[in-house]
């Protein structure tokens, strides 16, 4: 019996579990995504041309520091951009559907069914006034048209799936009665309740302690393999991304500056930003002395320098870097937006 049968959804079309670099049409395809932020006549581009592809069953990581545009990209896929932000251009196709052409009703059908999302702070994403079981069952009834009892039974199975002990009791718990790690599990149950093909996880463990983070990550990894879900994993934590992702995109100042299969990116990074960032990670070793840092600050929104935006902080920059926006270096699956890589 497959895990899908446990959930009582064996009648649904099976979703093939596909490994990394699967050929054929990607599940999600983003091209030239631009997102502008602002009001009235003052608009700043926060995301400036992001291309991203996710194949079925694949785990793609997007890493970057705050302000790099990674969370906005994730929210744009769900068309959940905050007030004051809008998609100014680009194309997004999900399983053959043009996401930008969908109306709000069409989007609502996708959200919480074919696409699930979990956030950094589950408390804001869960309704504080309703028991968690109720919330999951509601979503199931909305998207699958199940009866009340059947929906609750499935909600219980889902809580069990995300590793919550005594799921029947926990159905009646309110979000505030649960710990941070528990809430993130409930959030995950809600996100996968209607058999999504894509799960967007936006910094799902950033608010959690390391020990809880490890548990939640193990749970997410198990679930996505059991259910064959593709995952877009947004994080600032490179070490975590290296542990779980198949492919990784590194974002800086609203662009993907390097993208590659995880081993290539971490073992042979081509963009100086990636290299410098990897050096900065505090590791559990016996090194002492000053910590490596990247000098300067990430550019502010609306004040992104011309040429390569990383050039002012880059240890490998030369004259051309500040003058011209870099072309793309490409070798197989590996790309980097960098003049130095092209030399």
């Amino acid at each position: 019996m497959s895990p899908r049968d446990d959930l009582g959804v064996s009648d649904m079309a099976p979703i093939p579990v596909v490994g990394r670099g699967a050929p054929g049409k990607p599940l999600l395809e983003i091209e030239g995504l631009h997102i502008a932020f602002g009001a009235r006549d003052r608009w700043f581009e926060a995301v400036r041309g992001v291309d991203l592809r996710i194949h079925a069953g694949e785990v793609v990581g997007v890493v970057g520091e705050s302000g790099s545009g990674k969370s906005l990209t994730a929210l744009a896929i769900m068309r959940l951009l905050p007030r004051g932000a809008r998609i100014s251009s680009g194309r997004m196709r999900f399983a053959g559907t043009d996401l930008l052409a969908l109306d709000e009703r069409g989007m609502n059908r996708l959200r919480g069914s074919a696409m699930g999302m979990i956030f950094q702070d589950p408390l804001t994403a869960l309704n504080p006034a309703l028991p968690v079981g109720h919330q999951i069952a509601d979503s199931i009834r909305t998207h699958q048209g199940l009866g009340r009892a059947a929906a609750l039974a499935r909600a219980e199975a889902l809580l069990d799936l995300v590793g919550i002990a005594r799921p029947r009791e926990r159905l009646r718990a309110f979000p505030h009665e649960l710990s941070g790690g528990m809430r993130q599990r409930v959030m995950t149950a809600l996100a996968v309740a209607n058999d999504p093909r894509l799960l967007i996880a936006d910094e799902p463990t950033t608010a959690l302690d390391v020990t809880v983070q490890a548990q939640v990550m193990a749970m997410l990894d198990r679930i996505r393999r059991e259910l064959g879900i593709a995952v877009l994993f947004i994080s600032h934590n490179l070490e975590l991304v290296a542990e779980v992702c198949d492919r990784v995109a590194v974002m800086y100042a609203g662009r993907v500056v390097e993208g590659a299969v995880v081993e290539a990116l971490f073992e042979a990074p081509r963009h100086p930003y990636t290299r410098q960032l990897l050096r900065c990670i505090p590791r559990l070793n016996d090194e002492t002395g000053p910590m490596p840092t990247i000098p300067g600050l990430p550019p502010r929104l609306g004040a992104i320098p011309g040429g390569c935006p990383f050039a002012p902080r880059c240890d490998a920059a030369f004259a051309r870097c500040t003058a011209e926006a870099p072309d793309i270096w490409r070798r197989g699956d590996h790309m980097a937006r960098c003049w130095e890589a092209l030399r």
């Binding site: 579990v17 990394r20 934590n237 070490e239 290296a242 542990e243 995880v262 971490f266 559990l284």
Partner: peptide
Amino acid sequence: VPRGLAGRRSTREVAPA
């Protein structure tokens, strides 16, 4: 504590396409 590539679990190898 996450350990990057060294922390990748062997069980994570997924079936070929």
